[in-house]
Design a protein around this nucleic acid. Structure first.
Lengths: 218, 218
DNA sequence: ACCTGAACACCGTTCAAGT
DNA sequence: ACCTGAACACCGTTCAAGT
């Protein structure tokens, strides 16, 4: 009788891990803009304010969610050389981000948590072990992370297009009927033809890595 | 008597341009997260709902604001060759974005308006005129825009650090006392020393352009 | 220690009504 | 045509109170 409605079928012990997991699931399903403290509490069958015993802020929660995504990235051991390691980290980071598209736009805006720091460490370590001058290694780090980030962003943007097909049709049509931007038309066709798919990501990745490599001996 | 309080000192004719200008000013000053329809209406001395006669949506407004930033980018005429043109567009885009930091995180998320489309057209045109195979030109376009975007994002993130110095101190201190991430420490020192300033942006830009250039004759 | 409802200070937008 | 207040359906978070 003293138990009104809480404690659901065996799973509902309120925990930080529990909260974070449910929040991630909600963000994956409905997008992060639909993730509110109230909806989250509802999903967890608890009062909104109960969450604040495990979380200081919504911002802190989101930060933790982003770091969980970083945790999913495969951590290589670097035994195949700096270039293979950098490549693997880059590709694995991209994959993790694309699994959680909501994390992409806020990735750089959010403070790096422990897992993202570890990821940064691995990539910086790989670059440091390459024999590159340390300034070039630091610049190369940004070149690589910018590429990962920019590519993920663009991919996510295109993915959202498919979900809001009606609007997209209108927008793309409008672009294609503007005769002052023929090269944009060509570029749209490039994407529509799916010509990027072979390995667009690798193309620029290799371009950057090739460029860096020249600084080792030269 | 039939005039309660509106129509301010000579400037308050409600216009789309007027609304957009005021909104940009507010975003520049207080950040975009503080830009609400209500605060905007207040600033313009009108009722909130009056705005909806000039704007369909808050989303549409923000889209227009981002496009205004694109409008500020210098449009080169391409007479100095594809590489100089690409470089100038890249640098000018970066500068415009850094003048309006709020636009950076939402740049890629937002649908491109007429001015951003024009900017894309110019960059694509420069690449097309380079003699690059068209697939390489399309890939190079993304390599360049990703770099601009990623660099701007990182710069804005660092700028925000200065504004919230107390929190930053705590976060950076926490990173520096984690002994498992020595390369991250080195990277932080790299930034703190201001070693990037000479021309970090140009370094990766040239790296990309060099890499592309090889595809012209090769 | 853990949980909570009421309340506060906000949002964007619909609707029906004013001039 | 242009403007608007009231209302609706939401937010995140403080506070004071419950067990």
């Amino acid at each position: 009788m003293g138990r009104p409605k809480k404690v659901r079928e065996g799973e509902a012990v309120l925990t930080f891990a529990n909260i974070a997991e449910t929040a991630t699931k909600m963000a994956d399903t409905d997008g992060i803009e639909k993730l509110s403290m109230r909806r989250l509490a509802n999903e967890l069958d608890c009062g909104v304010m109960s969450l604040y015993h495990y979380i200081s802020d919504k911002e802190a929660l989101v930060e933790a969610l982003v770091d969980q995504v970083a945790k999913e990235v495969d951590a290589p051991n670097g035994e195949h050389g700096w270039r293979a390691t950098a490549q693997q980290i880059s590709e694995s980071t991209l994959e993790a981000q694309l699994r959680h598209p909501w994390a992409v736009p806020i990735w750089s805006t959010t403070w790096p948590g422990p897992h993202r720091l570890r990821l940064m460490e691995y990539l910086l370590e790989a670059l440091a072990s390459s024999g590159l001058p340390s300034e070039i290694a630091d610049l190369g780090f940004h070149a690589l992370t910018n590429h990962i980030q920019g590519f993920a962003q663009q991919k996510v943007a295109f993915k959202q297009l498919d979900s809001r097909a009606e609007e997209t049709g209108v927008r793309v049509q409008a672009m294609l009927s503007d005769e002052t931007i023929p090269h944009v038309h060509e570029h749209i066709h490039f994407h529509q033809a799916g010509k990027e798919t072979p390995d667009e990501f690798r193309f620029t990745l290799d371009l950057i890595l090739d460029g860096l490599e020249k600084h080792i001996t030269g």
